[in-house]
């Protein structure tokens, strides 16, 4: 029989600790596949965040560094500047990248660090039990917005990829979603381009991925896909928001 789909060597054999239906696993797999397909496993230094994906160093087959809350991009910067020959990526949640580590993210983007950030947005703090995130939607009930997020007192959800399009050193910015097989294929395409941007030394590349949190959203995994599609997608800019240009303004 011809294998159509088998496990990538870019991931270890360790089973994921994520809740049933959590789409972190899909994103891990896409990254693992690309590390293998692009022949990067032995050349990569990944940086893990704090949050649900804070143990992801156990899953990726490459060398990994565990960062502190929000500091993954700074750690990645330090590693990349020390070893410019290595492929360096960060894997971060929305709290990590858009709240406690917002300054690090935007500053690394402004410097055009040759690193790739994968930003997983599930509109909630999953690891700690479902508190409000910088990306939580207006009206969304979380354990720290029990009556729903209201803009008056808690402000508005932050669309980080949209902001990053305004930062010169951020060369590739995409916002994708892993809520369907088609979406997953597009997400992989975006990640591949982001990786290539780094390999080509063009600047900072950033891929935001809308992801689910069935447990803390209080829905089953299939309902979670629908919640993502109907509630989250309308609130966040989607697609390849910024692509590198060559002289003459054409996309490469």
């Amino acid at each position: 029989m011809k294998p159509i789909f088998t496990k990538t060597k870019g991931l270890t054999d360790r089973p994921f600790h994520y809740c049933p239906g959590c789409t972190h696993g899909i994103i891990h797999r896409l990254i693992g596949e690309l590390l293998e397909e692009m022949n990067l496993i032995e050349k990569t230094i990944g940086v893990a965040p704090v949050g649900c994906s804070g143990f992801c160093e156990n899953y990726f087959a490459c060398d990994m560094i565990g960062a502190a809350h929000g500091r993954a991009v700074a750690v990645a910067t330090g590693a990349k500047r020390a070893r410019p020959d290595r492929f360096v990526f960060t894997y971060q949640g929305d709290g990590d990248g858009a709240s406690i580590g917002l300054a690090e993210t935007i500053s690394a983007a402004a410097r055009g660090e040759r690193i790739t950030s994968i930003f997983v947005n599930n509109a909630i703090y999953g690891m700690t039990g479902g508190q409000m995130a910088p990306t939580s939607l207006i009206g969304q009930k979380t354990s720290t917005s029990p009556y729903g997020r209201d803009a008056e007192t808690m402000g508005f959800p932050l669309d980080l990829p949209k902001i990053l399009t305004q930062v010169e050193g951020a060369v590739y910015v995409a916002s994708v979603s892993v809520d369907s097989p088609q979406g997953i294929k597009e997400a992989k395409k975006a990640l591949r381009r982001a990786f290539q941007v780094q390999l080509d030394g063009l600047g900072y590349s950033f891929v935001s991925i809308l992801s689910t949190c069935p447990t803390n959203w209080g829905v089953n995994p299939v309902e979670a896909l629908e919640w993502l599609q109907t509630k989250m997608k309308p609130h966040f800019a989607l697609g390849e928001l910024k692509v590198p240009t060559i002289e003459g303004g054409d996309a490469v």
């Binding site: 011809k2 159509i4 789909f5 088998t6 994921f16 696993g25 899909i26 797999r29 369907s180 997953i184």
Partner: peptide, 14 residues
Amino acid sequence: ALICPDLALEVYRE
């Protein structure tokens, strides 16, 4: 297999 978050599935074609 594409959507399985846990790498539990492999697909083979006859």
